[in-house]
C-alpha cells in the first residue's frame, strides 16, 4: 500500500480533533497547552503534506513560521502558568476568571 498524502491528512485531522476536544474538556492549563501544541502540529503536518504533494516549498516555509510563533507563545504561556502556580496551590482553568466582564 502506497503512502499517499491522504494518509497524512487523515492523521493530521485526527490529531487536530484530539487537540481540540482536549482543549475543551480538560481543566489543567498545562494539559490545555499541550492540546494547543497538538493542534498546531496537526496543521504543520498538513502544510508539509501539501508542500510535498504540490511540490511547493511554501508549505515547508510556513511550518518554520508556525514553529517560531508556537515557541514564543509557549514561553509566554508557561511563564503565566508558573506565575499563577506561585500564587495558589493547584491550577484549574475554571478558577482563573478574574477578567470576567
Amino acid at each position: 500500500m502506497e503512502l499517499t498524502s491522504t494518509w497524512y491528512l487523515v492523521l493530521a485531522a485526527i490529531l487536530f480533533a484530539i487537540g481540540a476536544v482536549g482543549l475543551l474538556v480538560r481543566r489543567n492549563p498545562l494539559v490545555m497547552f499541550m492540546c494547543v501544541e497538538l493542534m498546531l502540529n496537526a496543521v504543520n503536518l498538513t502544510f508539509v503534506a501539501f508542500g510535498a504533494e504540490l511540490n511547493d516549498l511554501g508549505g515547508e516555509i510556513s511550518v518554520f513560521f508556525v514553529l517560531v510563533v508556537a515557541a514564543a507563545e509557549v514561553v509566554v504561556g508557561l511563564a503565566i502558568i508558573v506565575a499563577i502556580m506561585r500564587r495558589r496551590t493547584g491550577v484549574n482553568a475554571d478558577d482563573i476568571s478574574v477578567l470576567r466582564g
Binding site: L23, L24, R27, P29, M32, A93, D94, I96, S97, V98, L99, R100, G101
Partner: peptide
C-alpha cells in the same frame, strides 16, 4: 447584557 459573555473562563 453583552458583558455576561465575557465570563473570564478560557474554556
Amino acid at each position: 447584557f453583552l458583558r455576561r459573555l465575557q465570563n473570564g473562563l478560557v474554556r
